[in-house]
């Protein structure tokens, strides 16, 4: 079921001013059924015209809230950052196909890059509830542009890489993962920039891997066929409907 409802903003706070924000919204229908890895289509104002697809960061069924962690990238997310508590927000959701959540025999690995970390937090919470042990690897450009580490460190062992080495290991997540015995994990999940996903795809024979993809969307509902990504069999699938989460082995990053 997909809802188009007016949620009420409970809070909308910068984690890093003008860059990354955390918004909590009261919206019972969506909170009731949202699954990790799903997203929302949010009308941020009269301009831009299109809704903005934003990943769900956390769902609290009891409190009837959903949270989003978002980066200010353009006019739509700029609008979002200016909204205040108690204002209404026009939301469509929950949308798309999310991550596989179940109890695994061995550990699970979460790999996030930049704002791509957002959908992994709710996933981590639900994996933990299902009794899994979790390790987390996150990559950012620098210490000053890293965020939400306090959330992820609650889920399990957290290792961070930064491009300039100002926090954690210097480099991308590759600098961390190249030292990992990936076959000791039953499952890995990743979301982040395309170069990171391309690198992770090279590891898909070592660990069962799910990737959450990003694409420019029109409707977010599966109707316009804009946000497609290429599959290894040469066909296209809709990131908004069959995705955003795909098995790594299904996805092709070849031009």
């Amino acid at each position: 079921m997909i809802f188009k409802n007016n949620g009420i903003i409970i809070s909308n706070e910068p984690i890093i001013e003008d860059f990354v924000y955390l918004m909590k919204i009261n919206e019972k229908n969506i909170a009731d059924i949202a699954k990790p890895g799903q997203f929302l289509e949010i009308k941020t104002g009269s301009v831009p015209l299109l809704r903005k697809p934003i990943s769900i960061f956390e769902v609290d069924k009891v409190a009837e809230t959903i949270s989003i962690l978002y980066q200010v990238k353009g006019p739509g997310t700029k609008n979002l950052s200016e909204l205040k508590a108690n204002q209404q927000l026009d939301i469509i959701g929950p949308l798309g196909t999310g991550f596989t959540v179940k109890k695994f025999d061995n550990k699970c690995l979460l790999i996030g890059g930049g704002i791509g970390i957002a959908p992994l937090y709710d996933l981590g919470l639900k994996l933990k509830e299902s009794g899994n042990e979790i390790e987390i690897v996150l990559g950012f450009s620098s210490k000053d542009t890293s965020y939400a580490l306090d959330y992820f460190s609650k889920l399990g062992t957290l290792t961070v890489a930064t491009m300039d080495g100002s926090l954690g290991i210097k480099g991308t997540v590759e600098a961390i993962l190249s030292n990992y015995e990936l076959n000791t994990f039953d499952k890995a999940y990743a979301c982040g920039p395309e170069p990171m996903l391309k690198y992770l795809k090279t590891l898909e024979d070592k660990v069962n891997l799910e990737l959450s993809l990003e694409a420019y969307m029109g409707c977010g509902l599966g109707a316009c066929l804009s946000c497609v990504c290429k599959m290894t069999d040469g066909t296209y699938k809709r990131v908004c409907k069959e995705g955003p989460v795909f098995k790594s082995k299904e996805v092709s990053f070849d031009e």
Partner: peptide, 13 residues
């Protein structure tokens, strides 16, 4: 892809 973009108040597909 890219198959769609918002521009100048409308969209191109």
């Amino acid at each position: 892809p890219q198959r769609l973009v918002e521009t100048s108040g409308g969209i191109i597909n």
